[in-house]
Design a protein around this nucleic acid. Structure first.
Length: 337
DNA sequence: GGTCCACAGGAAAGATAGGGTC
DNA sequence: GACCCTATCTTTCCTGTGGACC
């Protein structure tokens, strides 16, 4: 059934991308000066989850690597690397400059100095989920650093700019903006057909089943691929040669749940307890949530720390906060993060 | 309108932990 | 092994705000 599991993974970058030629060309043009030894333009890729932003950024920089002999690239997901230190560390890691840098013993400024001293090949840094960065001043420092071109990825422009200071806002306003929209049904169908063609045995899934998956994914390629992967796994376990309509129907909630579960796995023990409570109980006031949390753990953190946890979980898009101040309630998000 | 209470979130200080240095 | 340095996490303290109640 599954002939190549890699192509069913969300991080897989295909050799050719479909339905995103204008976006690829736009980004390629922004990075084109690098081919002549000049810095590229800072690019801002905007749009909803699963619209292909990450894939296009990686695909385009990969294509650039094929055309430019000397170039370095690095992909950083700011969900995981959300501090200034981690971002700088990850960037230096991309050029092999972290051998003697240690998480607990090297000052942040030294990392930046080392980066500013870098005089190697041009360096393209992709910062995904850039709105999740805790300290956005690192963007300003990178903007000022010679030899670095940034490709920034975020969901919503307003949310990103709301958290930037004036000097960054004015600089990023002049950056190249590339807007991504959700995939229409027919485009998502052809993307899933291609993945199925590359990763599953011939005839493993029919057009009706792929359309069903695309329809359930509602324009989000990441969810579509997750459902397809889930369906293929179930069919494999059942020992059947084809993915039936019944398997697809059962795989839809699992595909969505898988994305949520992977995000929840990033939570630490106490954060996970809070998330589980909200999943079980639904909407809760902060007081109710804290009382329930205290009843479930041995050594409860303070209310202030729990507020920080909930803020972080909001960032992870696992939890929604509604209302202000005393009227505030928390509930788990319905849609995948 | 005044008071109380619950809550958010900023600031600062303390605690923790990993690696370096001697 | 003791001590130092540093990033990160946690706690404490505080201010501001809005809803509930009188």
């Amino acid at each position: 059934m599954i002939t190549d599991a890699r192509v069913l993974q969300p991080e897989f970058i295909p050799q050719e991308v479909e339905h995103r030629n204008p976006e690829v060309n736009h980004l390629s043009n922004a990075l084109k000066p690098i081919m002549d030894g000049h810095p590229g333009e800072t690019s801002l890729l905007l749009g909803p989850s699963g619209a292909g932003k990450t894939c296009i950024a990686q695909f385009t920089t990969e294509r650039l690597r094929e055309n430019v002999l000397d170039i370095n690239t690095q992909y950083i997901n700011c969900w995981q690397d959300y501090t200034r230190f981690r971002v700088l560390h990850r960037i230096l890691d991309g050029i092999g400059q972290t051998v003697d840098i240690h998480r607990r013993s090297t000052p942040k400024d030294e990392l930046l100095e080392r980066l500013q001293d870098y005089d190697g090949p041009h360096y393209v840094v992709i910062l995904d989920e850039v709105d999740q960065l805790e300290d956005k001043s690192v963007l300003y420092d990178l903007y000022q650093t010679r030899g670095i071109t940034m490709v920034l990825i975020a969901n919503r422009e307003e949310e990103l700019f709301a958290t930037l200071d004036e000097r960054l806002t004015s600089r990023l306003h002049s950056s190249v903006r590339i807007q991504f929209e959700k995939y229409p049904l027919d485009e998502l169908v052809s993307i899933l057909e291609a993945r199925a063609g590359w990763g599953l045995s011939e005839g493993a899934i029919g057009n009706d089943q792929i359309t069903h998956i695309a329809d359930a994914a509602a324009g989000d390629a990441r969810i579509g691929i997750s459902i397809l992967r889930n369906a293929a796994r179930v069919a494999d376990q059942q020992g059947t040669d084809t993915i039936t309509e019944e398997i697809v129907r059962d795989a839809v909630p699992g595909g969505r749940e898988e994305i949520r579960r992977k995000t929840a796995e990033k939570l630490r023990t106490h954060q996970r307890v809070l998330y589980e409570i909200l999943q079980e109980e639904g909407e809760m006031s902060p007081g109710e949530l804290y009382d329930e949390y205290c009843g479930r753990v041995d050594e409860a953190k303070t209310k202030r720390t729990v507020r920080n946890y909930l803020k972080k979980m909001e960032h992870y898009r696992l939890v929604t906060a509604q209302g202000e101040k005393r009227a505030r309630t928390y509930r788990p998000r319905e849609d995948p993060p």
